[in-house]
Design a protein around this nucleic acid. Structure first.
Length: 110
DNA sequence: TATTTGACCAAGA
DNA sequence: ATCTTGGCCAAAT
């Protein structure tokens, strides 16, 4: 049986697997897929092309930053701000655009 | 089919 | 510390 699902779909599946209150990084997702397509991951999340089933707000950069579009360093985007609020509500605190103890809240796929 | 892009990462200056 | 460069991969055009 060939893999009918694209990489993107796998990413969504993995992201869906992440429990709330936890975060993951593009890298971790890629690694979970046995690939290094950090970029492809972000590219896929670019706009949740698949549905609200993909909690992109739970995805952060390897640096612990929100990642968020390369210019969104000050949470300019309201969407991002909203995501931050959601994370805070779930237990993930954000400080200075960075996840507090992000490494501790990181969800490991491996 | 080829080129461009993109919410990345790591290292170098 | 910030900025630039190179590299990586897949999806979109």
């Amino acid at each position: 049986m060939p893999q009918t699902k694209s990489f993107n779909e796998k990413i969504y599946a993995l992201l869906k697997k992440v429990p709330k209150g936890k975060v993951t990084t593009y890298k971790a997702l890629a690694e979970g897929l046995n690939s290094k397509a950090y970029r492809a991951v972000g590219q896929a999340m670019r706009c949740n092309p698949y549905a609200p089933i993909v909690p992109c707000h739970r995805v952060v950069s390897s640096n612990g930053t929100l990642g968020g579009f390369r210019g969104t360093k000050d949470s300019s985007s309201k969407e991002i701000r909203k995501k931050i609020s959601m994370l805070m509500k779930e237990g993930v605190k954000i400080k200075n655009n960075k996840v507090v103890e992000f490494q501790k809240k990181l969800y490991y796929f491996l």
